[in-house]
Amino acid sequence: MIDKTVASCKEAVADVFDGATLMFGGFGDPGVPGRLIEALREQGASRLCVIHNGAGGDDFALGGLILDGRVRKLIASFPNSPRAWAFRDRYLKGEIELELIPQGTLVERIRAAGAGLGGFFTPTAFGTELAVGKETRIIDGREYVLEAPLHADFAFIKAHRGDRLGNLSYRGAMRNFNPVMATAGKVVIAEVDQLVPVGALSPEEIHTPGIFVDLLVEVERDPRLFELEPPKRRSAK
């Protein structure tokens, strides 16, 4: 019998190693695998490269990992949200590297990796600062930039419901990067609000088929993801 469930987030993230590249799903708070990332903070792996749309926020999840000095490099499109003060402090001190990518290019690079593609040509960023040094080509009279696939050792994703086979279903705006990242990590770990029996999810409501998922943990959401007002700013140590 296939059973991808594990009992705890601690167990789910146990194999993350120093220097690993990780993808974290989520855009703003929806779809952030907050419990898995907090478990990784406890686990201790360091010199991490993280791929995420933003730079997290406050002393929590990715913001917390950065605050703890555990992230060597961030690959993101929007790392400058006001709540990402931990990133800002470390970046200005030269303690963290940033690869800035337009959002559509970021998700498509992840998609390319998951789909087994060697890259793609996009018009986005042609002739701008973000395309400097990149190969270009004119196709049917339009200018394009060559972009490479973006792989990861681990992808942490968040879904609303899942079953032991790894089938996942999302709610509202939780999908964002999650279904795409689920295709692009060597090890894909899903945090779900509810573990349901096989068959409880109808085939139509499975957004991420279980084939992409390696480990799955059911856990109540971190209450910090429900906050309507962000907590007051604190400075990095």
Binding site: R88, L100, P123, T124, T128, E129
Partner: peptide
């Protein structure tokens, strides 16, 4: 997307919108 000399850059989806 970026004021000249701005310390922390961020682009989000602006370029994809502007090109697409």
């Amino acid at each position: 997307w970026r004021v000249s000399g701005e310390k922390v850059p961020g682009v989000g989806g602006a370029m994809d919108l502007a090109f697409g």
